[in-house]
Amino acid sequence: MNDTTASETHSIVIGYLLWIFGFLGAHRFYYGRRLTGTLYFFTLGLLFIGWIIDLFLIPLMNEKADRRYKRGPVDYSIAWLLLVFTGVFGLHRIYLGKWITGLLYLLTLGLFGIGYIYDLWTLNEQISEINGTSIR
C-alpha cells in the first residue's frame, strides 16, 4: 500500500455523484470549500457556469481534501451521503455517534433547516476531530 492510498479521506466517485447536485454546492461542501459552496447554493452554481467548470476541477479538489483532513474510523463519504440525502432526519449525526442531536434533528427536521446548513459548513471538521481523537 502506498502513502497516497493510506491518506485518502474523500472519494472522487462521491465527489462526482455530489456534483450532480453541485449547482446547489454539494460537492464543494464535501471537499471543504464552504464559501464557494454557499455561493453556489445561492447562485445555482454561478448560474450553472461554475458547476460545469467544476466537472474538470473535482480531481484537484479531491486531492487537496485528502491532504487536509484526517483519516480514521469515521468515513467522510458515508457521512456526507447521509447528510446530503437524509440530513434533515439526522442520520449523519447518528452515524457520527451524536445520538442526542441526531434524534433532535429527526424530531425538528434538522432543527428547522438551520442545523442542516450548519452541518454543511462543519461536517468535515467534525469528522476530522473524531478521527483525530480515535485510537488507531
Rank of each mutant, 00 (worst) to 15 (best):
D3R: 09
P73C: 01
F23V: 08
L120Y: 11
G25T: 04
G32T: 00
D75A: 07
G37W: 07
Y76K: 01
K98Q: 15
Y31N: 02
I12P: 03
Y76W: 03
I12C: 06
L60K: 15
I127F: 09
L83I: 06
T122M: 04
V88H: 08
I130E: 09
L18P: 02
E125A: 13
S128N: 10
E125S: 11
H92K: 05
Y95E: 05
G22A: 04
W80Q: 04
L103W: 07
I114E: 09
L83K: 06
D66E: 07
T86S: 14
T9R: 00
F41E: 02
K64P: 00
T9F: 00
L123D: 01
I100M: 07
K70H: 09
F85R: 04
D119A: 08
G72K: 09
W19L: 14
L120A: 03
L83G: 04
N131D: 12
E63K: 15
Y105D: 07
G45L: 03
I49P: 05
R71C: 05
G37K: 05
T133L: 12
H10T: 03
W99P: 00
H10Y: 05
L55V: 06
I114Q: 09
F42D: 04
T86C: 11
L55E: 00
R68W: 03
T5I: 09
R34E: 01
N131V: 12
G90E: 03
W51V: 09
L91D: 01
A26M: 10
N2F: 02
I20M: 10
F112S: 13
T38I: 15
R93D: 08
L17N: 00
I49T: 07
G45D: 04
N62F: 00
T101S: 14
F21Y: 08
G72H: 10
I114L: 15
Y16T: 08
L81A: 13
T133A: 14
Q126C: 07
D54A: 06
I20D: 02
T122C: 02
Y16L: 10
Y69R: 01
I58D: 04
V74Y: 15
F89I: 12
G90R: 07
Y31E: 01
I12V: 15
F48G: 05
L104N: 00
L44H: 03
A65D: 05
G15C: 08
G32R: 00
L109M: 10
H92R: 07
N62E: 10
G115T: 11
L35R: 08
L82D: 08
L106C: 13
L83H: 11
M1K: 06
H27E: 04
I52K: 05
R28A: 02
L44M: 12
L111I: 15
N131S: 12
D3L: 11
F56I: 12
T38S: 13
A65Q: 05
L24Y: 12
I49L: 15
G22R: 00
T4K: 13
H10L: 05
R93L: 14
L111G: 09
N131K: 14
N131G: 12
E129D: 13
H10K: 15
S128L: 08
A65P: 07
G115Y: 13
T36E: 14
P73A: 12
R71W: 06
T101V: 14
L46M: 14
Y76S: 00
L91N: 04
G115Q: 10
